[in-house]
Amino acid sequence: MNVAIVKYNAGNICSVVNAMKRLGVEPLVTDDPEKLMAADRVIFPGQGEASCTMAYLRERGLDEVIRSLKQPVLGICIGMQLMCSHSEEGDTECLGIFDANVKRFQPLCHEDKVPQMGWNTIVDTRSQLFKGFHQPEFVYFVHSYYVPLNEHTAACTEYTRPYSSALHKDNFYATQFHPEKSGKVGERILQNFLDLTP
């Protein structure tokens, strides 16, 4: 299995590399369009700020490359947010793969801290990413912005409000949480992604 990880100015890419290695896959971290297009799977990971990361992708033409990919693609955290149409973070036009707008969490009380940081459950899962899931499972989140529920919602989580913790459309998959940091459950999700029949 030839797995490529999009190399860009986002943090935490090495966690995804480590997670792939634990699954027995040696991923290629690259920003070379040809290599990305030739891979069996592409992971678009990251931690970072929307406008800076989006500007970096545009400068290198990676926005067009990611949009045009035909193999299964997995966006993680900021990767998922950048795959939406627009983000409130830095008022940023994003890739527009998912027709959804990214919004900032509005605390309802003092106990609602932003960012949400820690383990929360995913429910109403509907995607091959969650194959074999029969009950709410805990996964690890760190984020201040969220994607509202929409037609592409593939998993739902509640924090101040119900929102999309995963998205799926055609060959594009995305999780707001970090499967690479979500213990056994996260490993199963990543394995499911590798096992997808395109």
Partner: peptide, 8 residues
């Protein structure tokens, strides 16, 4: 640790 452990 980072190579082995799959939690934060």
């Amino acid at each position: 640790i980072a190579a082995t452990i799959n939690i934060p």
